[in-house]
Structures are given as structure tokens and as C-alpha cells.
Design a protein around this nucleic acid. Structure first.
Lengths: 105, 105
DNA sequence: TGTAATACATCGTAACACGAGGTATTGCGC
DNA sequence: GCGCAATACCTCGTGTTACGATGTATTACA
């Protein structure tokens, strides 16, 4: 998938991945795999960004002797998803513009 | 509209705007206005990029004593639009992922 | 013993949209 | 005739971003 096209979707995907249940880095990547591929470096950048924007909170926990950082969505994070849903209408109208501009002959 | 979300759409919008008839900078902006707002600096950056990628060709012409640069789409440019249409399926599947993850209770 | 999987992290780079600023002409109101 | 909006082009610097490369450490299994 085109990198530029992913840009507006990744933040919302990550937020969606933790929306119903707190999750952690490795699991988020696996859960999103069927929809979008993202590398670890990309994910950790996103998580840092979303934390700075107060769209999620972090909690460290030990699991089987291994560190895990669980991410929990905030109200602002939920709002970000809602904003995306509203913007979706605009995206669809752009898509229709692109497909309707066919030469009908 | 969120800048990041626009990123994957702008190139295709510009290509669509010149697809059926050659067009020029100022007109492209006005034609796209109902769908996406883009500034002149953004458009000229895009046009340069698409030209470098051989997705369009340029032809200068004088119109009412004023210079106009007409942009014409190439086969590669048409291919870019087709690629977008195919990627659209992935985008829709992401959208469905986002909206389906509602807590049903 | 080694190798994949799990789990975290940082750094540098290239791509990109945009605001701010610039040049020059036409056309209209006053 | 003067100013200003509209038309039409352009450049530069900046901040945001996705990603590959790279690093650390543990568990599980062949």
C-alpha cells in the first residue's frame, strides 16, 4: 500500500487496536496485520506521538519475565477516531470524483 | 481535513483534474476546491513531482498576454489513478475495521 | 546450540504539505 | 489615473512523518 495513503490511517488504526482492550506493541502489530502492515519503528513512533497528544496512556507490566507496556486509550483518543469517521465522508467524495471522471464514449 | 489523510489523495486528485482535458495551475485549484482545498505552493510542488515521475507533460502557452502552463497526463499518470482505485479496497477494509470495533453492549 | 519469536528502543533519512514571500499582468470600481 | 482583486506563475524553509537499520534482552523450541 502506498505510504502516503497510509499516513492518515495509521494513527486511527492504532487507536482502534487498543480501543476495546488495552494492548501492547507486539500485539498491536499482529492485530493490525490483516488490515495494514506497519513496522516496529513506525509503531513506536506512533505510540510516542499519541501519548504526547494525550490520546493514550501507558502502563508497564511484567508478563512471563518480559516487560510489556500496555497502552490505554483516552477520551481524546476516542475523539480522534470520531473525527476520522467524519472525515471519511470527504474521502469518499474524493474517491467518487476520481472514478466518475471517466471519459464516457 | 487532516493533512495526513490528504497526502495519499492529492496526487491522484491533480491527475484526475487533468485527465480528460489539459489544465493549468490556477484552474486545477478551482476545479478541485469542492473536493479538496490545496494551496498554490502545494500544487506546484505536486506538479513538479508528477512531471519528474513522468506522469504528466508540460506545455507553455500564452493566453490573453498571460503565461499559462498546460499539463497533460501520460500513460503512467493514468496508471497511477488505476493503482489508487485498486488500493481503495484496502482503504475501505481499514475503514470497516475502525467502525466495526465498537463495543456492542 | 542456534534460531525464531517476543518485546522493547533509537537514529538518520527522504518525502511531503504548507505558509510566507516574491514577480507580473489584466480588469474593474471609484 | 489609482488601487485592489483576480489571474498566473515561482521558491524557500519548516515541521511532520514512515521506515529501514540497528541495538538489547528474554523465552521457546528444534
Amino acid at each position: 500500500m502506498d505510504i502516503q495513503l497510509k499516513r492518515g490511517l495509521l494513527d486511527v488504526c492504532v487507536l482502534t487496536a487498543i480501543k476495546n482492550d488495552d494492548s501492547y506493541g507486539y500485539k498491536i502489530i499482529k492485530d493490525l496485520k490483516p488490515y495494514v502492515e506497519l513496522s516496529e519503528s513506525t509503531l513506536y513512533t506512533i505510540l510516542k506521538r499519541l501519548e504526547a497528544a494525550k490520546m493514550l496512556t501507558v502502563r508497564s507490566a511484567e508478563h512471563d519475565g518480559r516487560l510489556r507496556k500496555y497502552y490505554h486509550i483516552t477520551q481524546a483518543g476516542v475523539g480522534r477516531i470520531e473525527d476520522f469517521k467524519n472525515e471519511w465522508k470527504e474521502v469518499v467524495s474524493i474517491y467518487h470524483f476520481v472514478i466518475k471522471e471517466e471519459r464516457h464514449e
